[in-house]
Every structure is written in C-alpha cells, then in structure tokens.
Simulated assay, not measured.
Amino acid sequence: MSRLGWTLEQRAGVKWFFMLGSIAAVFGLILGIALVAMGNTGGWALVAIAVVTWSAGYVTLKNIRKSQP
C-alpha cells in the first residue's frame, strides 16, 4: 500500500514551523556573532548549534518531500 501525500493543513504547519525555526536560527547566529565579537568563545558553540540544527531540519524536510507522491 502506497503512502498518501500530506494534507494542505499538514503542509501549512510544516511551513510555519520551518519558518519559525529559520527565524530562531537567524537570531542564534546574530547572538553568536555578537558574543564572538565581544570576546566570548561560547558564541562559536551557539553559531554551530544554530547552523547544525537548521541544516538538519532542512535536509530532513527535503528528504521527506521527495518521498511523498
């Protein structure tokens, strides 16, 4: 039995949460860069966390979208 595609409401929810995650990643990047500029080395960790989590979400959604009919 083949899998059905996402409903319109599910796609809208995914787009909303991805946009929210993207905004959070941008704020994380800005904060991380500001911390690095002030001399706090923990800013690099924040930048890395923001980039890795956003990238993982993007790749996951891209793969799920490809597998949908």
Score class of each variant (00 low, 15 high):
Ala24Thr: 09
Ser67Arg: 14
Trp16Asp: 10
Thr53His: 04
Ser55Cys: 08
Gly13Asn: 11
Gly28Cys: 01
Thr7Asn: 01
Val26Trp: 03
Val26Lys: 04
Leu46Tyr: 01
Met1Ser: 14
Met19Glu: 13
Asn40Phe: 13
Ser2Thr: 14
Trp54Thr: 07
Met1Glu: 09
Ala37Leu: 12
Pro69Glu: 03
Thr60Cys: 06
Ala50Tyr: 00
Ala24Phe: 10
Thr60Arg: 08
Trp6Ile: 05
Lys62Asp: 14
Val47Asn: 01
Val14Cys: 06
Leu8Tyr: 03
Leu46Phe: 01
Gly13Ser: 10
Ala50Thr: 00
Gly28Val: 06
Phe27Met: 09
Tyr58Leu: 15
Val59Gln: 06
Leu8Glu: 13
Gln10Arg: 12
Ile30Met: 10
Ile30Ala: 15
Ile33Cys: 11
Arg65Asp: 15
Thr53Lys: 11
Ala56Val: 13
Leu61Ala: 12
Val59Ile: 15
Ile64Pro: 02
Leu35His: 06
Met19Phe: 14
Ile64Glu: 15
Glu9Lys: 12
Val14Asp: 12
Ile30Trp: 04
Gly21Ala: 04
Val51Thr: 13
Gly42Thr: 07
Trp16Lys: 12
Ala12Phe: 06
Ile49Arg: 02
Met19Pro: 01
Leu29Glu: 07
Ala48Gln: 03
Val47Asp: 02
Pro69Gln: 06
Leu20Ala: 15
Val36Phe: 05
Gly5Met: 05
Thr53Asp: 05
Ala24Leu: 15
Trp54Tyr: 13
Gly32Val: 00
Gly57Glu: 02
